[in-house]
Write a protein that binds this DNA or RNA. Structure first.
Lengths: 331, 331
DNA sequence: TTGAAAGCGCTAACAA
DNA sequence: TTGTTAGCGCTTTCAA
């Protein structure tokens, strides 16, 4: 049995209430008493039992993160910055993997309610988020990150996907007014939709017609990028430029190009979303839309803590962070 | 205020004890009573408060993972398989990032004690692990994963690093009996040491002398791989073959090669540890030591749950999983 | 400035 | 088969 507050109280010759006050750094305690208690704590090796504390205070200091995938560089960079931010405020993070499944999202939300977490950050795996009302109903604030849902109103942090893509595609077009293809993700995801809109916007701006053969929609995974790039390159008349809407598809696309003997100079000119370590290593992309990954995480955490510790009545906000255009090779 | 067991009891017209029994699926309850309670639970939207339960049972159903880095493909693949395994037994995972710092390791261990976690899996960031006795002293079982420490005795799951490297380097030597370099990680890490031993073992086996100019030790990060590969290639007489002891160094090394115009055919023949998506995309490695990443995670989780739910008195075990030699290109 | 005591929501003897 | 009741370790009135 671990040392409890009671034991410490005995040791220090005070009441448990006094010990509690010292632990919580309350004022109005004689210095002598405080010292006695502190000494008893040190000598006994006492450590708070946060479970007992939580039962009383209704706060656990635990935040849940519901993410479509754990082993994913992008999501985990978000997770990392969430964790970093929360740490400064004494919160811990329970990470829940949903495998991009709505059913799992429901299970995990229920679990987090039972764990009495103080708040939840969700990276939704689809356009629908109404099931997260399980959390809201239990009085647990929710913040969406990276993606929005169409049917669940709450705080959210996303990037300005459309503008990011618009700028990158505009850049490409400005270099070569010619056939520019688009490899995108499922319209189930708000960010995939927005990126597609950015592409369309740029075409329109430059008065280029959309060529349906050059617009390929897949699913944000490596395999999909591979397949779609293959499909493009096997056209009778392959495009001169390709914009790829996500880093995994980018990886897959490059995989295809390398495997088929294209080097950065002989391949179509490439633009891509996301700017992780990888792009710079692969070296095929000419322009890249860099996301403020850390910003997404820390801002989401910030919004969440505001709901938890601050004013709960302010209207929900959707924060849109700006992306950064990176010219990675002059070509 | 959320619905409690008391409210359900009232609704069903039974005692709280009975409700508790139904919740915990105990036997010896009349079907009629059970049904009444179940109905009351459903209609009231009741959900267990695991905090209260934990206070009573001394079990939280939470496992801690202490890892040197969150945004790291390798560690998060381990985390993923841990999470997957635990989920099946009703446990959740709190992930703690230590930034490869011992001080942070201590903080996180203390935190996990206070959170009353049922067990902890640690990927240590250095050779020393004595500070994890904080956990042991609190009665919390610990399992080490991926790396061992020299001063903390507990269950552990690692791979057979030495044998893996030995086999890969032997393969390379068998193809070309010539100068083979080694790019490795800090001897602070058990796996880095073991991999180096594997290299030495292969040299010895083939009666090749060790050339100190060809043995470069860095730190398992991308930058280090870049720098060391540069150092090698700038030698008056660069090596014909290089074994790289970790995937991030591999990435860095390839980055250097690509940046300097080497393609897979003109570069030295390369062998490497780890076999993530990436290696196959980059396509430079001829042979690769594939780790059973999922196995590390699930086995570690299994050992931990054995300690928690099973016999606590069995002696500590170190499980060594075997690696897999993958010939990735014939050259 | 301190202490006594109630109670957070649940489980688990023990009794009936 | 079900109910009564005593805590689990802590915080927090209220009283002194």
């Amino acid at each position: 049995m671990a040392v409890t507050i009671k034991k410490v109280a005995e040791l220090a010759g005070v009441s448990t209430a006094t010990v509690s006050r010292v632990i919580n750094n309350e004022t109005g305690i004689r210095q002598l008493t405080r010292d006695k208690v502190l000494k008893a704590i040190a000598s006994s090796g006492y450590r708070v039992n946060t479970i007992a504390r939580s039962l009383k205070t209704n706060r656990t200091g635990i935040i849940g993160l519901i993410t479509p995938e754990i082993a994913n560089d992008f999501f985990m960079n978000i997770a990392r910055s969430i964790e970093e931010y929360l740490k400064g405020f004494g919160y811990s993070l329970i990470i829940c993997n949903t495998n991009e499944s709505t059913v799992e999202e429901i299970h995990r939300a229920e679990l987090l309610v039972e764990k009495c977490v103080d708040g939840v950050i969700v990276i939704p795996s689809s356009n629908s988020g109404s099931h997260f009302s399980i959390l809201k109903d239990a009085g647990i604030p929710v913040v969406l990150a990276d993606r929005l849902t169409s049917d669940f109103n709450t705080d959210a942090v996303v990037v300005d996907n459309q503008k990011g893509v618009y700028m990158a595609v505009s850049y490409l077009i400005s270099r070569d007014h010619n056939r520019i293809a688009f490899i995108g993700g499922s319209p189930e995801l708000s960010n995939a939709r927005e990126r597609y809109e950015g592409y369309l916007q740029a075409l329109k701006e430059y008065k280029l017609a959309k060529d349906n053969k050059l617009v390929l929609i897949g699913n944000f995974h490596v395999d999909s990028g591979f397949k779609l790039m293959k499909q493009l390159m096997e056209l009778p008349d392959p495009p001169d430029q390709v914009f790829i809407a996500n880093n995994f598809m980018h990886m897959g696309a490059i995989k295809y190009l390398i495997a088929n003997g294209y080097n950065p100079d002989s391949s179509p000119r490439i633009g891509s979303f996301d700017d992780l370590e990888l792009s710079s290593i692969l070296g095929y992309a000419s322009v890249t839309v860099a996301q403020p990954v850390k910003g997404i995480g820390s801002k989401a955490a910030e919004l969440l803590l505001n709901r938890i510790e601050g004013d709960k009545t302010v209207p929900f906000r959707t924060i849109r962070l700006q992306t950064d255009l990176k010219i990675t090779r002059m070509r």
